[in-house]
Every structure is written in structure tokens, then in C-alpha cells.
Simulated assay, not measured.
Amino acid sequence: MRFSLGPHKNRLAAVTLLGASILTSASVASALPASANSLYASPASASSAAALSTRDGLAPEVGSGATLLKGSTTASYFWDDASGRAGDTGLPASGKPMQKGMIASPSWPLFTEGYLLYKGKKAPFFVGDRGPGAPSSSGIMIDIDAKTFAELTGGTFNSSTLAVENNGGLGHIDVQYVVTKWGEGVGKKGYPVAFSTGAWGRKDLNPVAPPKAEPVEG
């Protein structure tokens, strides 16, 4: 899981949330509003989530299916390869190795797929980790892998420091997101919510309705 505060700055402060934020199934249910509890069921097993990938060690193929959800948010970046560098918090929660195209989400199911839009650039993604932690309470709802973040912002990824450089100092950007496939495990299938809500730990029985297709002018 990720608890970074953005581009590898003050990450240790966020890690202290680990003990308080990771809740048991029962405590997650009690932490959520009563209206939200009815939308969630018991967590699925970790083995069922791992079975979603058909290729060992690699991300699932990111499809270009119908739009299930679209919106916008502020995004930070990360690169967690279990090396312990730059406040790295360990391997991604999905069990997949850190790689280009992986994002962390505080509430969407793992292996959810879609794409990001930023200043005319498009980047496919799949949810492979949990986070941001504390920053998601301030509206930062996506952590983009550092290589993709570098491409989107015109920078370069420094594999030694795990930082994105030469992009004018950008550590956060405002992106549009489009979800084309929901993961089948636990998590909220709708607009992202803060990690602290515990929505990441419950199976959503009432996914958000896909947006209506815009009429074609003839």
C-alpha cells in the first residue's frame, strides 16, 4: 500500500497513518456512513484478486472498452519497487511488480482499467496499488507511476532517485480519468473517495451508472 504525500516529499509522515488507516472488515463497516454500509459486502479473498491476471508478474491487458466513469482529480506520482529508496513503502498491493501504466487508487478495486488525459496526452492505466493515503483526504485521488508521469509532464524519470526531473518542478498535476473496466475485487466502483473511508476494503454491490452517451448530431 502507498501512503506517499506526492513526489517523494514528506512520505515518512504519511507512513505513520498505516496503523490507524488499515482497518479490519468490522471496523471499516462501522467507520463508513450508514448509507454507504448497505452498498458493500464482505471482502473477497486475496487469491481471487491475484487470479485476475493471466500473465505472471505482468499487468493485465488494458482494454479500451466503454466508458464506465469519467471525472477529474489531482494526481501525484510514485515508484514503489521495494528498494527502500525515496521513502518507498514496499511492493504494490496487487502483487504485481512496479511498472509503467500502474496507478495507485485510494478506493477503486485493484485491476480497474482505463486511461488518463493531460494536456492532449493520453496514458492507459491499471490500478495496481493502494494510495495516496493522507493526500487523498485533500483531493489527490490518483498516484501515477513515475515513468508515465514523466512522459505526461515532459520530464525524465531518474531511476537512481526515483524522482521525476526536468519538468519544471511539477509534482502534482490535474488530470482527467476515464474508467473502462472495473476490477472484480473489493473497492468502490464509483467516484474516488479518501483512503481513510475504508471503501477500498469492501466489495461494492452498487456500482455507479455509466455516463449516458452523448447524442450524435446528424
Score class of each variant (00 low, 15 high):
K119M: 01
T74Q: 09
Y177F: 15
A44Y: 07
A14G: 15
Y177D: 10
S159C: 05
F3Q: 13
G90Y: 02
K122T: 15
K70G: 06
A209H: 07
F3W: 13
G198D: 10
T161I: 06
E165C: 00
S136C: 07
G133Y: 07
G114I: 09
A194T: 04
A14Y: 04
A123Q: 04
F157D: 10
L5F: 11
H8E: 13
E165T: 08
L152N: 04
S137L: 01
R85G: 00
D204K: 00
I144S: 09
L39A: 09
G95F: 04
M1Y: 10
H8F: 11
M98K: 00
G114N: 08
M102Q: 08
S76F: 05
F3C: 12
T16M: 11
T180G: 07
W200L: 10
G84C: 07
G169Y: 10
A134M: 07
P106R: 15
L110T: 14
V28H: 10
S27V: 03
L5H: 04
L12S: 09
G198A: 12
P192Q: 03
P43S: 08
L58T: 03
A36M: 12
P7M: 02
A150N: 05
D174W: 04
P92V: 00
A50I: 07
S138N: 12
W108T: 09
M141F: 15
L117C: 05
L69F: 01
T67G: 05
R55Q: 08
G133M: 11
F195D: 11
A104F: 13
R202L: 12
V175T: 00
V186E: 09
G154V: 03
L52K: 06
G187I: 05
E113M: 02
K189C: 04
G183K: 14
F111N: 08
